[in-house]
């Protein structure tokens, strides 16, 4: 990992020196080893840049604000993050001319919650060794298979293609296992309505309305969210009625439908571990099945599915009939 970090820093330095950008948007050490946070680096501070198994944060959303500033910023993008940036560029949210996008390799990020669930307590640091993650803890060393600690979203990684980056950093990575990212959605669809209802009631009732999912989501980048706007009729700071958190999550998924790149940040940051990506992914699956494959951010010219139509689109009733056959 250190080797890759060095390669990134070296290339970033070259780019800064060549004048391609004036600063770097990357990850800085957090309070703990497992929570590196987004940060902006000048050339002199590049040695503080972190890139390891926990640098999961998608930096594309920060480009909205960064690109408004003077000068060009070099942003480090993992493959999945690059789609978010491309989508933001498509929506004119990011001034692309102020961005230099460097695609960096990623072999999946780690989920500290999974490590804790596997008994890692009092962790002080970690390192990676041949597909294993070694935690240095107060109580000694714990070794776990990397595969077992991958973030939910990385378990069904979409691949290593980048969208709309200026250059990519070549780096050899092990082969990516092929996984079906719609498996869980399909499994839910298979259940009875009662089972699904029970599942979602259980999940959504955990929501504390902290808005982390919204604040981290690159697609949820409205100047002002409808849920914060007293004029919208749905504004609320807390879920005052039982219905409200489901309304919040349905509408949130709805507002990003056709724009969500499936980056999985919402589920990653949810303090209550609600599988929010399953809502977004449901829309993605429906769109793919009903209107043809669509990947937000992939094609700058493609019309997003919800601002598009064909006269032959299926009727709403047809969709509901689908499951019944």
């Amino acid at each position: 990992m250190r080797e890759l970090t060095n390669a990134i820093c070296a290339r970033a330095k070259e780019l800064l020196q060549s004048g391609a950008a004036g600063r770097v948007l990357g990850w800085a050490p957090g309070e703990f080893f497992y929570d590196p946070t987004p940060g902006v680096f000048s050339e002199g501070r590049l040695n503080e840049l972190v890139y390891d198994g926990f640098t999961a944060a998608n930096l594309s959303k920060y480009c909205i604000a960064e690109s408004q500033k003077e000068g060009k910023v070099l942003v480090l993008l993992k493959p999945c993050d690059s789609y978010s940036l491309a989508q933001l560029v498509k929506e004119h949210r990011v001034k692309r001319e102020n961005i230099y996008a460097l695609g960096i390799p990623c072999e999946g990020k780690l989920d500290m919650r999974k490590a804790r669930a596997k008994g890692v307590e009092g962790a002080l640091s970690f390192r990676e060794e041949d597909g294993q993650v070694v935690f240095e803890t107060l109580y000694g060393e714990v070794r776990l298979a990397r595969e077992e600690l991958l973030l939910e979203r990385c378990l069904c990684c979409r691949g290593r293609e980048y969208a709309g980056v200026d250059e990519t950093l070549e780096y050899a990575l092990p082969e990516l296992p092929k996984r079906d990212r719609f498996q869980k959605v399909a499994a839910l669809e298979e259940q009875t309505a009662q089972e699904r209802y029970a599942f979602w009631r259980g999940e959504l009732s955990k929501c504390i309305r902290c808005n982390a999912c919204r604040n981290v989501c690159p697609a949820c980048s409205c100047v002002q969210c409808v849920f914060d706007n007293p004029q919208s009729g749905v504004a609320a700071k807390a879920n005052s009625t039982e219905f409200e958190e489901s309304l919040f999550h349905i509408i949130r998924a709805w507002h990003v439908a056709g724009r969500c790149t499936d980056c999985g940040e919402c589920s990653r940051v949810c303090p209550q571990s609600i599988p929010l990506h399953l809502l977004n992914r449901k829309f993605i699956k429906d769109v793919n099945e009903l209107y043809g494959e669509y990947q937000a951010g992939a094609d700058p010219a493609a019309r997003p599915p919800l601002v598009n139509y064909t006269p032959e689109d299926p009727e709403p009733s047809a969709v509901l009939e689908r499951g019944r056959a």
């Binding site: 929506e91 100047v223 706007n229 997003p304 601002v307």
Partner: peptide, 10 residues
């Protein structure tokens, strides 16, 4: 409130 995203235009 406008994001400038062009959805409406489309």
């Amino acid at each position: 409130l406008c994001n400038g995203c062009s959805s409406c235009e489309k």
